[in-house]
Write a protein that binds this DNA or RNA. Structure first.
Lengths: 129, 129
DNA sequence: TTACCTGCAAACCATTTGCAGATCC
DNA sequence: GGATCTGCAAATGGTTTGCAGGTAA
């Protein structure tokens, strides 16, 4: 409803997310931006992250353990979480590659399944040996 | 390491979870048990829930939004979360029915995928219309 | 007797929010 | 000028923890 105004802080956050593959937490973003913009506050980082999520410009990743992480790529895609180092990585899948599991799950279910949320676990390339 | 002693509180919690399909939060469990056991504390509920999870006797369900929920059925199975009423329900699937998605995800991934965590979303039987 | 367990309350952590002033349009 | 934004700091909500006393084996 309300129209967004330009905000240097929000631009900085968006730009930071566009240039990292780290899937950082709000605090990681805060720490990093503070190096060039020492006055920014953590509250502002959270407020803008939520705004950007609402606008569909970024994605919030809530995988059970630890703080939420954020992804500058708003296209739906899957994520991998390393059980050793806790890093989060993108998983490249053809669009819709897992859509069929909604049907599998629907087979014996009474309600209406509209989607799913999946995280893959294991050891990342650095942690496997 | 340490051996568990009998505890009336822990038994009560286990029994409560064994007899509900609600997938309650720690607080729901606390509120309910307090009706017959007014002295129990929320800290004790949390401590025992974590112990039971460590023992593999119950499961903790951490789906992004809201408090964690607990399931008295320790066998791995899938869950559905209603986007309307927030209820959590079991999804009955043949064991291993979705194991193949690990292979799909592994195809273009560098690390070693050992498992996945999936929640289904939609409207439950009560909320669809 | 001695682990382990409890209630209580305070601590913790991630996130949100109220406020008074600054900024964009 | 007025709505939207900011920094700050306090509040919130869920969960954990330290402590001193209680209980099972």
């Amino acid at each position: 409803m309300s129209n967004l105004k330009f905000s240097r802080q929000r631009e900085t956050i968006k730009e930071y997310l566009a240039n990292t593959k780290e899937h950082p937490t709000a605090d990681m973003i805060y720490m990093s931006i503070r190096e060039t913009n020492p006055n920014i506050s953590l509250g502002t980082v959270y407020r803008n992250l939520n705004l950007l999520v609402d606008q569909g410009e970024i994605i919030k990743i809530s995988h059970g353990t630890g703080s939420d992480r954020f992804d500058g790529n708003p296209k739906p895609h899957y994520h991998f979480v390393c059980t050793a180092c806790s890093c989060v990585q993108d998983i490249e899948l053809a669009p819709g590659a897992l859509d069929h599991i909604n049907l599998i799950a629907s087979a014996n279910f009474n309600g209406e399944i509209k989607g799913h949320s999946t995280f893959f676990y294991g050891h990342c390339a650095n942690c496997k040996r």
